[in-house]
């Protein structure tokens, strides 16, 4: 919790600083029609969203340094798109499907054991 707050504030201060050094230049975003957080309310909700994502990343086993890297490369829109539903989003990662398949077969056999159609495991008691 503490760490994620630190990370977010450091990332945020970098972005704010970058904006200041740009002076009064009208940004490209205004022309592309996707203005970033300009009002102070929007900035606060952006801050909160970043903090939520940082926390979720930590809970998913990412070390604090990597959380910082990940957050820095995500745009505001991307942060908003995952902040509220990160737990249910798909995460592609299936290089070795064998374990998954074994688990799957295990469950199927368990069900058929319980139904009394098979007797693969010693610990099951059929409903028959």
């Amino acid at each position: 919790m503490q760490i994620s707050k630190l990370i977010v504030s450091s990332v945020l201060s970098v972005t704010l600083f970058a904006q200041v050094s740009w002076g009064q230049i009208a940004s490209t975003e205004l022309v592309l029609g996707s203005p970033s957080a300009v009002s102070s309310e929007a900035k606060v909700s952006q801050f909160v969203a970043r903090e939520d994502v940082a926390k979720a990343f930590e809970e998913m086993g990412v070390d604090p340094k990597t959380v910082e890297l990940k957050l820095a490369s995500l745009s505001d829109d991307e942060i908003n798109s995952i902040a509220s539903n990160i737990d249910t989003l798909p995460a592609g990662g299936d290089g070795g499907s064998i374990i998954g398949a074994i688990v799957f077969i295990f469950i199927v056999l368990l069900i058929t054991d319980i139904l009394g159609l098979t007797k693969v495991f010693n610990f099951t008691r059929s409903v028959r």
Binding site: M60, V62, P90, A91, G92, G93, D94
Partner: peptide, 8 residues
């Protein structure tokens, strides 16, 4: 994402 076993 280690505990999710993949990439968003």
């Amino acid at each position: 994402l280690p505990l999710k076993g993949g990439t968003l």
